[in-house]
Design a protein around this nucleic acid. Sequence first.
DNA 1: CATGAATGAGCCTTCATTCAT
DNA 2: AATGAATGAAGGCTCATTCAT
Lengths: 193, 193, 193, 193
Amino acid sequence: MPTTPLRKDAAQNRDQIVAIARALVDEGTPLQLNDVARRAGMGVGTVYRHFATPEVLLETVATPCLEALAAHGEQALADPDSLRALEGFLTRTVEAQVSDASLAPVTAAAENALPHTTALKASLWSTGTALLDRARAAGTVRPDLTPADLVPLMCGIAYAVDVHGGAPADRVDTARRYLAALLGGLRAAPTEA
Amino acid sequence: MPTTPLRKDAAQNRDQIVAIARALVDEGTPLQLNDVARRAGMGVGTVYRHFATPEVLLETVATPCLEALAAHGEQALADPDSLRALEGFLTRTVEAQVSDASLAPVTAAAENALPHTTALKASLWSTGTALLDRARAAGTVRPDLTPADLVPLMCGIAYAVDVHGGAPADRVDTARRYLAALLGGLRAAPTEA
Amino acid sequence: MPTTPLRKDAAQNRDQIVAIARALVDEGTPLQLNDVARRAGMGVGTVYRHFATPEVLLETVATPCLEALAAHGEQALADPDSLRALEGFLTRTVEAQVSDASLAPVTAAAENALPHTTALKASLWSTGTALLDRARAAGTVRPDLTPADLVPLMCGIAYAVDVHGGAPADRVDTARRYLAALLGGLRAAPTEA
Amino acid sequence: MPTTPLRKDAAQNRDQIVAIARALVDEGTPLQLNDVARRAGMGVGTVYRHFATPEVLLETVATPCLEALAAHGEQALADPDSLRALEGFLTRTVEAQVSDASLAPVTAAAENALPHTTALKASLWSTGTALLDRARAAGTVRPDLTPADLVPLMCGIAYAVDVHGGAPADRVDTARRYLAALLGGLRAAPTEA
DNA sequence: CATGAATGAGCCTTCATTCAT
DNA sequence: AATGAATGAAGGCTCATTCAT
């Protein structure tokens, strides 16, 4: 740990800020540090001290979910069925994106505010790459997709779910349907017989 | 013609406003009426007179492209090959979306500022519905996709292309690749044997 | 008539403008020449040609009522009962003020836009002065009121009615009550016995 | 004290804003927050922080005077002479109105921006009602006036003084004269004999 | 004469960020 | 460390008036 551990009260403040930010993200309110401070009953300065920009705060909010995805990715690599592993990974990814509003902007952003976010995204990227390469080697996925396409396509599906609209409760279903379409193709299998 | 044709000078102003707005859209700058006025060397009031809100201006900018899409859709309905017709329509749609930044927000918006936009979107919707229904009836597309999914999926692909980034010149190629993936499925055709 | 009579169509326009302005005044909408023009289906320039400022238009709207008041004032001077004459005049005045929204601003204004308005107000002023002087000479009104107080007091009553609020239908009644209070005094006659 | 006391510097700013607003009111300039900020040499945001709307600022400016009136009203209720009490209260009220330009708009407004203003106006209202009721019970005021007429009549007198015009120094005298006319009646007391 | 497009000053308001306390 | 007041650029919009057509 290169940084001095926070004083207990500072840590409490930090946690509360993140909790408030999480709540704001969940209700779709844009993250404004002034707003966070007011709801947290703190001065703006305190919030700025902990989170220099809204992006830092947002990435902090997104971190646990990104970590969980990364961890799952690691496990997926152990699955001997390469296609199932890839699909499972992608499924988890889109489910997370449509369930947690903090993910989409963080995932889609070209630049990250936190090194940790960079590391997590790199981990996800390399996991995806490995899963895709394995599946391609097994001949189970089309060859014209590259690792650089995985993130965009997952973000695209999440965005499609947003455009589709509808009840929040249906978002995961819609996302699964869209991913299934992408995986299986819109075209019906010509002659399953 | 229910509306009086504009005076020549007014029409010139109007055209110039639209041209500037088009340029702003192309360079990714958000449309702000004050900004448009400044760049056009006009008073704000002039811009407001012609376009009461940024949405009206944006939809005006998008209109020609939407009209072209709608026109093409009409023709696609005449194609006897229902799958080819649908795919051609979708291809045109995503190509347009990634080539013209005015389309994505207009397409994704739930509310329209111009009745004409509403009509065009309705036309595109019904064309898409007809094409999809025909293809489904022919058994050439998977049955779990509904007309309400077409717009979201096309928007999703366009968004995926944005996330992918890269040179503007490659956007159409990427879009085609993503659409191909969606149409054919990420999974390799199983009957390669 | 020093001015050339208007061409017939111009006169029609003028009349229509005044009619619209009257309607706007009656519904409490502030007189905006642009607004008048739009409602009249004319160009703004036309309205400006006829009425250079909102004040000119407003005074034009108020003119008939002012003329009627002035005419009544002339007759009141013929009444041998000086107190009754004065009270009748004041009554008519406040009734007019609370019934016609164009009067209050014109009456209260220090400057007039139209010479005709100036003349009418002068006429009312001199009538009021004459009536007041007669009544004072008869000892029927308190001596500390001057002619310069009549207009302010009538405007004050009209304003009091505005502040009182309530249904438009009650405005005249309220005005009469307030004038009665002013005329008779808030204090009860000490010993009517 | 439910609210945290302001920091010293903030309190100074606040006071300066109020002082400037007071000066603007006194010179008849409409209160515009940007204008206040410019004159105060502060950022607009500072003014908005302290006074969210011009109404809030205006009511703040008017508050001391309203409080003084309310306090006086309390004392007037103790006067055993019901008529003298009422007249004293009304006299103070109109004197205040014509001396302080912030009062008229606040008094006449149907809605208040500050709860404190609401409370003060309610206090004045109930004091006025009590004084009027007492005087009516004593038979010393005409019975057709209701408590709801007091505010309008006082506002009307203040407005009459405005219409009368003249030197600011004469405003209080004019107001007293008008109130005297209202109290005593324009008509000369008949039984002077 | 009529038209109505153009003007642009002017007002309102928000918000990300800094810094004195 | 915490506070929260201050900042002021930035954007939005309206409307009275002018003047080219």
